[in-house]
Design a protein around this nucleic acid. Structure first.
Length: 805
RNA sequence: GCCGGUGUGGCGAAACUGGCAGACGCCCGGGACUUAAAAUCCCGUGCGGGGUAACCCGCGUACCGGUUCGAUCCCGGUCACCGGCACCA
């Protein structure tokens, strides 16, 4: 009988599907386990090997957990709103709904063909109105709690397409589609107050089982820093507030800088002697793109205000106020006290514009360069702070400022509020109505979902509005508040909206009264293990933690955090080690591999390719090795056919027990590659020593999470009952794995010289005697003196020899 | 610049975090089977050197140094590559 993988694979895929083998139950005696993979964006290109790696890994984990007796929820869906689909629709004059449907069908087929054990009854799609109804519902709750608001924000404007672009569409300051320059424009946008959750998003990381680099990256992204806000008196009579992490260096503050967008500037403008110059600078800064403004090594520019200056509160000296775009309007207070002696940027500016540079922390040479390595420094030229260590000085000055009522401790975050609107068609409509009288009014929840209107053209409009804005009979409505004429919001939500809560919907996907029932939410609690790409660390992962915390606050979900554990996979690179891309022509299509070698080989190879967390280059040769391995197992199965009994053979028993432990541990540690290596070694031993039906049973059970189809087929051929994938994981007996004898290394002065075989757990003296008795060692010991011995049980003995005196 | 990570044979990688470096797989070489080839099975395979030989001797985990009986693993320094952030005061 030949190993006909095509037949076998479609046979079992159909059985699993028909018998709903992997359907999760919302309840029951078994402990629950929720495994999650990032649901795919159903692009026209179909599934990529980049999907196969994390999906196979979590499928292996899910299958293993089922064998361990868990009620496993392993769901899948599609994150289908988004630009590529919309762009395809524009180009081909076809409704994005139809494009999505076609792509989803293709993805589903491919996912099934890989043998993934998804619960297909819980499949979801973010573009389904029954789904986005709840995305809109969550938005309304955010709006009602004041966490969604409208604000004027700079947006990316493509000068050629005459439309607003999402940040992802801007590559190197140019439009991704047409290559024309992108400039900033002010536009009113919906924003979500994620910053309100900044501290909790940092604090709650501590208790989560996330891989460390994810935690670090999130913390850095949120970017907490502590310091003080200090008010400087100005000659205009008002105060200029600054934020500084180094209030201790205030004696060195020789001038101040405010950002070109700072509100004070307009206030002062009339009294400025050089108002024209300042206005010109403001206009210049406004015309620059983000990219130009933040460009590195750019020479600092700025204008000193004439007619307004400030007073340094500790020195009482009059200091200049400058406007410069090296100070950002969006961080802190948009104004700084410049301490050129100890800040590189201030130093550079002061050198160029001739401001005094004062050393206030001992150690460097501030005439040469800013001295910033001041953590352990001592204060100088700082009045009452002189001689203090910087940490003491910080405390002292903060208290001094507080006592005077001109300064307070302050924490700042780099994290910004989330720009939540897109001027696009293919997204969830924002369910808010604008009324001249009542302002922004939430839609009545009972009216949800607010369906996307049918439009004639999906092209963005010339004025940067969503194509929906053209649908006047959709836009024009009545105000739910006063009943007067009003207009609907025409912006749609970003792609991140639907993916911020999708895991909750899996718990109860068909519920039409709530995003999921309370019982389902309680039962599944949170995701036990979520695997996904590092590229989602600071967007999707952070956004969904934010939404979840909000839902927790309003009593919808029972947990503070959505994901108990987060792991991340490395990228699959092209054959030569460079990134896979269409333009390089090195993209591997999983379907091609399945056609040539079968899904089991594909799955096995993608898990065997290397360390799961690291990038790994594809190798079509190495794929063959995995196919060969399955062929060998198939042959073993043929050999065992017709045999009876379920005992392990004496010859293989110890190896089987050892392998059970190894494969078990490696799956839970995500060391799939070494787990497979252990299975390969076991198969090699079976070839050596022969195989019993019982030996095969153990092998098939261990193989089934990785290569489930062939495991089922041989399982059936050998006449075992039920399906392999519904069996319990084989038991492992430590006592059966210990060998009677151990080969130990013998070192002389730390160098390996020989090996000896001794009884396991021999005592040290017996080992030393055996080592000395070894002919090679005995020869080396001639004329030498044994000064020391080190024995590591069952591993090695090291003899320290010295020439005899 | 800052924050992470990585560096091991011809290649992908292992090594219970201080104890026989290179498991497993690919490639390659040899043999068996075959009229032949493919497939399959068996054997070999870090580098250099010595021996007719079973074997023996050096050198080897990016580089330099340190700690240790013993270092891929710990410490100090250097270099290279990858990822993230980047005028965040």
């Amino acid at each position: 009988m030949k190993y006909e993988f095509h037949k076998i694979e479609s046979k079992w895929q159909k059985k699993w599907m028909d018998e709903k083998v992997f359907a999760a139950q919302n309840g029951g005696d078994k402990p629950k386990y929720f495994t999650l993979v990032e649901f795919p964006y159903p692009s026209g290109n179909g599934l990529h090997v980049g999907h196969a790696r994390p999906y196979t890994a979590m499928d292996v984990v899910s299958r293993k957990k089922r064998m361990d007796g868990y009620n496993v929820l392993f769901p899948i869906g599609y994150d289908a709103f988004g630009l590529p689909t919309e762009n395809f629709a524009i180009k081909n004059h076809i409704h994005p709904k139809l494009v999505t449907e076609k792509n989803v069908n293709h993805f589903r087929e491919q996912l099934i063909s890989l043998g993934y054990s998804f619960d297909w009854d819980r499949e979801i799609c973010t573009t389904d109105p029954e789904y986005y109804k709840w995305t809109q519902w969550i938005f309304l709750q955010l709006f009602k709690k004041g966490l969604a608001y409208k604000a004027k924000m700079p947006v990316n404007w493509c000068t050629s397409c005459k439309c607003v672009l999402a940040n992802e569409e801007v590559v190197d300051n140019a439009c991704e589609r047409c290559g024309s320059p992108v400039v900033r424009r002010e536009k009113s946008q919906w924003m979500l107050k994620i910053t309100e959750y900044a501290q909790r998003l940092i604090d709650d990381l501590d208790d989560l089982d996330f891989i460390e680099r994810v935690k670090i990256q999130q913390r850095n992204w949120i970017g907490r820093s502590t310091g003080a806000e200090i008010d400087f008196e100005t000659t205009a009579g008002d105060k200029l507030r600054v934020f500084s992490t180094r209030p201790d260096t205030i004696f060195g503050a020789t001038y101040m800088v405010i950002s070109p967008e700072h509100a004070m500037l307009d206030k002062w403008m009339e009294s400025l002697e050089n108002a024209e110059e300042v206005k010109a600078y403001k206009a210049l800064a406004a015309g620059k793109s983000d990219f130009e403004r933040t460009e590195l090594n750019k020479e600092k520019t700025g204008v000193t205000l004439k007619g307004v200056s400030a007073i340094n509160p500790v020195t009482g000296e009059n200091i200049a106020i400058c406007v410069s775009d090296y100070v950002l309007a969006t961080y802190g207070t948009g104004a700084i006290m410049a301490v050129p002696g100890h800040d590189e940027r201030d130093w550079e500016y002061a050198k160029k514009f001739g401001f005094p540079i004062i050393e206030v922390v001992k150690g460097g040479n501030v005439e040469e360069a800013a001295y910033t390595d001041t953590e352990d420094g001592v204060m100088v030229n700082s009045g009452f702070l002189d001689g203090m260590h910087v940490t003491e000085a910080k405390k002292t000055i903060t208290k001094w400022l507080a006592d005077k009522g001109i300064g307070t401790e302050k924490v700042n975050y780099k994290l910004r509020d989330w720009v939540f609107s897109r001027q696009r068609y293919w997204g969830e409509p924002i369910p808010v109505i604008h009324c001249e009288k009542c302002g922004y009014v939430p839609m009545d929840e009972s009216q949800l979902p607010l369906l996307l209107p049918e439009v004639d053209s999906y092209e963005p409009t010339d004025n940067g509005e969503s194509p929906i804005a053209k649908m006047r009979d959709w836009v024009e409505t009545t105000c739910p508040c006063c009943g007067g004429p009003a207009e609907r919001e025409t912006d749609t939500m970003p792609q991140w909206a639907g993916s911020s809560w999708y895991f909750l919907r899996y718990m109860d996907p068909k519920n039409d009264e709530a995003l999921a029932s309370e019982e389902a939410l309680k039962y599944w609690n949170c995701v036990d293990w979520y695997n996904g790409g590092m590229e989602h660390t600071t967007l999707h992962l952070l956004y969904s933690r934010f939404w979840h915390k909000f839902l927790y606050d309003i009593g919808v979900v029972p947990t503070k955090e959505p994901y108990a554990k987060r792991s991340s996979h490395g990228m699959i690179l092209g054959e030569g080690g460079e990134k896979m891309s269409k333009s390089r022509g090195n993209v591997v299509n999983p379907t091609d591999i399945i056609n040539q070698y079968g899904a089991d080989t594909m799955r096995l190879y993608i898990m065997f390719i290397g360390d799961f967390e690291k990038a790994a280059p594809w190798s079509s040769d190495a794929v063959k090795g995995c196919k060969r391995f399955l062929d060998r197992i198939w042959n073993l199965g043929q050999q065992a056919k017709g045999a009876t009994g379920e005992e392990y053979s004496k010859e293989n028993e110890a190896s089987i027990h050892r392998t059970i432990k190894k494969v078990n541990d490696d799956i839970l540690d995500m060391k799939f590659n070494t787990g497979i290596a252990a299975l390969m070694s076991l198969v090699n031993e079976f070839y050596d020593k022969g195989v019993s039906r019982g030996d095969m049973k153990a092998l098939l059970l261990m193989l089934s999470p990785y290569a489930p189809h062939i495991a089922e087929e041989i399982w059936e051929i050998l006449g075992f009952k039920g399906m392999c994938c519904t069996q319990a994981w084989p038991e492992y007996d430590e006592s059966k794995t210990v060998e009677a004898e151990k080969t130990m290394a013998v070192q002389v002065n730390g160098k390996l010289r020989s090996t000896i075989t001794v009884a396991t757990d021999s005592d040290d003296q017996a080992v030393i005697d055996a080592a000395c008795a070894d002919p090679k060692i005995a020869k080396m010991m001639e004329g030498m003196q044994l000064v020391k011995t080190i024995v590591v049980k069952n591993k090695l003995v090291n003899l320290i020899l010295k020439p005899q005196a």
